[in-house]
Design a protein around this nucleic acid. Sequence first.
RNA 1: GCGGACGUGGUGAAAUGGUAGACACACGGGACUUAAAAUCCCGAGGCAGCAAUGCCGUGCGGGUUCAAGUCCCGCCGUCCGCACCA
Length: 682
Amino acid sequence: MATERYNAPDREKHWQTVWDAKNVFRTATDTSKPKCYVLEMFPYPSGRIHMGHVRNYTMGDVLARAKRAQGFNVLHPMGWDAFGMPAENAAMERKVHPKKWTYENIAAMKGQLKSMGLSLDWSREVATCDPAYYVHQQRMFLDMFAKGLAYRRKAKVNWDPVDNTVLANEQVIDGRGWRSGALVEQREREQWAFKISAYSDDLLEALGTLDKWPEKVRLMQENWIGKSEGLQLRWKLDPTTAPAGHTELEIFTTRPDTLFGASFMAIAPDHPLAKAAAASNKALADFCDECRRMGTSLAEIETAEKKGFNTSIKAVHPFDPTWTVPVYVANFILMDYGTGAIFGCPGGDQRDIEFAKKYGLPVIPVVAPKDEPARSKAIAKVHEGVPFLDDGVMVNSRFLDGMTTKAAFDEVAKRLEREKLAGKPVAERKINYRLRDWGLSRQRYWGCPIPVVHCAACGTVTVPTMDLPVTLPDDATFDQPGNPLDRHPTWRHVPCPKCAKPATRETDTMDTFVDSSWYFARFTAPDATSPTDTAALDYWMPVDQYIGGIEHAILHLLYSRFFYRAMGETGHAGRQNLREPFAALFTQGMVVHETYSRAGIDPPQWLLPSEVAIAGEGDARTATEIATGKPAVIGDIVKMSKSKKNLVDPDDIIAHWGADCARWFMLSDSPPERDVIWTEAG
RNA sequence: GCGGACGUGGUGAAAUGGUAGACACACGGGACUUAAAAUCCCGAGGCAGCAAUGCCGUGCGGGUUCAAGUCCCGCCGUCCGCACCA
């Protein structure tokens, strides 16, 4: 027998059992000690952990252990983001109930996480699909409803025709569903929304206080909120040309200084004025219909021609009653931004200049560079079709001539605020945000039920707190598309809580991002009988270090920031008057791996790393498919994913080399914020 | 189109404007061993040279500075986010 070697799997198992038996990582609120709340984004229980989890949780674990060693009382919990579509898909494909599938996955993944030797307080484990968790979410929803922070609205929604559900704007990527990849359609529908837009400015301003967040994430959120300051400005319509009842057109502009460059108005196909005009104009009605049919995909938007239709309505320039410009319906104007109407200034905008040329409208240069030689050149170029709208001085703009753009902005605002139209100021300063309210209704079974009842007599009635939770029926069917709650024979039929007459439950469930918007607060008191426990929150919040993937830079982090504010408003966020739940954020890099595919086949047939043999070194490396002996192609190094099959199972690594080895490599190979290239050799 | 990040050996990567390549992997040589693995020691940016040493080197081209991987200007390339947002 050779000398005894360190047997990693054996020793690791031993100590993990000891830690478990002695509850060494259990944490209690202890105000005599300084606290440190270390949190990694909780996983979706897909069934197996992957290398991204290993990296994420190792980083958090190292920090938690270090802080513990430094004398901090460390909260390091773990739970499950357990609602969501994959469970329902599994139900449809494999005839297994979402609940069963989810809890089996949780059990399997919990075992894997334990094999990693993480110092987690498992006594605080929560699963968002547990009624003991979502009952509190329903309570908070009702509290938010009472405060007007959750409301019902008829809205155009992003409809995913594959998953048969509504998606939030944030979940539409390049015009496709973030999960299904299907082209998203626009549909009108009653649905629930959170009033995140009420916090636009606060969410934006407070980014400045998040000095322990990556600059990149703050910038992404800033852009997403998209603040723009401008002027809301009403143009009088020429009464001889306008439909009855329409006397003016309100537009939003960030560049009122360019008002003397106006050569047309453009309104959205859904704009009330467009609809009124279309009522007596068949060709216009057809044009509007065509615009509505146009998809929202990236490809369609980029290739779609900028088209307009002259309504023959004329708008009167606010500074010159003799100057009128034509009003077009245009396919590139969005009804839900600003007022759904703009004035076009071809001198300063590529899109406007193309539009003007196409329809033979004037092009007036109104902004020019400050220095003389550049000026005449720029003006000449504008006439040729090259817009100029940089900082400069005003030209061709009457009383604005010679002013800087900034001064001209203020001058126009000042004059038009004084000017009256129909008794009201012609214009007012206005701030617009790109951020829209968060549509949270999902036509799905495996999500938190929205605790309201629709009654023919009483309207929308909330479920009384004592009747919560509204739980999901276990006996739903998953054999056809659509929402199983809608076709359940009995679940939806309940008496109205107010008048007791027959009524129907809301069958929409909540977006799973709601579940993950407050779990960090629940971890501080997972057994509290109210959604949160004030004393626990006051001690533990905020999260001192949050760690997760950059892919959540907008959705999850912005929603959580909003939700904690809403929780404050409804008395669930403790006494600290804390608005920001995450004091510090770290976004770790991805785990990436080479891809392999069968040679000479397109589209590629991917091979698992374990299915290929590599020979040679450097540029001379070659790959062979082990099973067939045929050559394989070594492809790009990309994020590990099922679709590209470039996966390495953490279990194999842990079983062979031990968890310490896997953890060590993850931390030592590349800086934590950067991608780590997983190689067996490494 | 807008916003951002990045570009340094064979590889992962270090460098408050002050000796570029720390540390490590891989590699080469050596020790130990019958042999290997493991371990330990030594070497190493490139070119030239037996060597001492010299020259060249942080994507490319300029600039500021006593001094630039680092700061400024202009390119090239890669990656990420947003995008008919008025």
